[in-house]
Nucleic acid binder design. Structure first.
Lengths: 77, 77
DNA sequence: ATGTGACTTCGAGTCCGTA
DNA sequence: ATACGGACTCGAAGTCACA
């Protein structure tokens, strides 16, 4: 199998953009992935996967991350 | 079983808000769910489920709907 | 034209590790 | 601290028939 189970077949442009944005903001606040994950109540590895655009994140988790960063959802786009 | 399979256990506030927004915009343009579904390349019933907040929509589908409505994603929030 | 129940598939999301 | 792998669960995706 050439495609890993947990990886999007084609990393969608939008997921890449979103992941970059999250990483950028996270780093600008000197947060580790682990800390952000804890604040957003998602799994440790999940933040990494989102930042690398390996997951097609759902609306509820988008909101969790936005809340953890004290942002409006629209500010992530 | 008291909880329907395809229904979120608790309709999240954010999904409700999102669904209302989609419906509002769709109606303001006199589009049927069927037409919008076709334009966004998702199933007819799916739009209905999103509008009723019965699905925790993923980012890729959020983008599809935004594109179909000629909107930026942020305009849906 | 829309709502809903039932259904299958596969990917979102978690957890354990290793480097 | 982060990336990444394997393995797992259950819920999102997607469809259909019918009200």
């Amino acid at each position: 199998m050439n495609i890993k189970n947990n990886e999007l077949r084609t990393k969608s442009r939008i997921s890449i953009k979103f992941g970059e944005k999250v990483r950028e903001i996270r780093l600008s606040r000197n947060l580790s992935q682990e800390k952000l994950a804890h604040m957003a109540d998602v799994h440790r590895t999940y933040i990494g996967m989102v930042e690398r655009a390996e997951k097609n994140i759902t609306l509820v988790n988008i909101e969790k991350i936005a809340n953890a960063l004290n942002l409006e959802i629209k500010e992530l786009f």
